[in-house]
Design a protein around this nucleic acid. Structure first.
Length: 215
DNA sequence: GCGACAG
DNA sequence: ATCTTGTCGC
């Protein structure tokens, strides 16, 4: 079922390509009334902290909060973020009494060199629809979206649309949205806008705030 | 070789 | 991500 996490760069890249072929880029879910937000942070003394919050949708009332702490066993390498944060995310999900029906991640999904960013990787292993919302760009070309909430431009790489630069709030830099698993880009953009009050969408923003005071 | 590089 | 206070602006 779950694969090995302690593998070198070469093997990790190979595994990403293999898993990317299993990702579904189409909507594969019913009525969504429960969503989740995930965030991971690292401390200088070598620990990772992960929080998963579950909310009602679209009301966004908090149903559950879970957080875990564990030693970081993998370094941060651009393109291999899921190998560093993935184990912590899965461990935190095991603590959930009720799983969300759609999950937001702080990072990318399809907008990735091998098209398997953290959101796609986790969505696949958890078998849950997922969306990646990154605060900065990992790769791709795009033009600045208009300064109006909801405005977006497509991000492309290798002649392919990999995600969108979305203005989640007027007067702020755009966020980078991409499909994680079991959802198309248009739906990912729509859901992200529906849960964005500030620049960072509520699910991950609140997971981040929770981590700031959870330990 | 040079620049870029999620968190 | 982390190191870190005040400060400029809506």
């Amino acid at each position: 079922m779950e694969h090995d996490w302690n593998i070198d760069y070469k093997q990790a890249v190979k595994l990403q390509k293999k898993l990317a072929a299993k990702v579904l880029l189409e909507d594969s879910f019913g009525h969504i009334h429960r969503i989740g937000g995930v965030d991971v942070k690292a401390s200088r003394d070598g620990y990772l902290y992960c929080a998963v919050l579950v909310f009602t949708f679209p009301q966004l009332e908090i149903l559950q909060k879970q957080a875990i702490k564990r030693k970081a066993a993998y370094p941060y390498i651009p393109g291999l973020l899921s190998f560093r944060e993935g184990p912590a995310v899965l461990q935190c999900f095991e603590r959930l009494k009720t799983r969300p029906q759609l999950v937001f991640f702080d990072g990318n999904g399809f907008m990735h060199p091998r098209r398997l960013g953290l959101a796609s990787h986790m969505g696949l292993l958890l078998d849950l629809p997922s969306i990646g919302v990154a605060k900065s760009k990992l790769l791709g070309q795009f033009r600045e979206p208009k300064n109006q909430k909801g405005s977006y431009t497509l991000v492309k790489d290798a002649g392919q649309v990999i995600g969108a630069a979305l203005r989640s709030r007027e007067g702020t830099k755009p966020v980078f949205v991409s499909s994680g698993h079991r959802i198309c880009l248009q739906s990912a953009i729509k859901f992200t806008l529906n849960v964005s009050q500030y620049r960072i969408c509520e699910p991950t923003r609140q997971a981040h705030n929770f981590l700031a005071k959870a330990f």
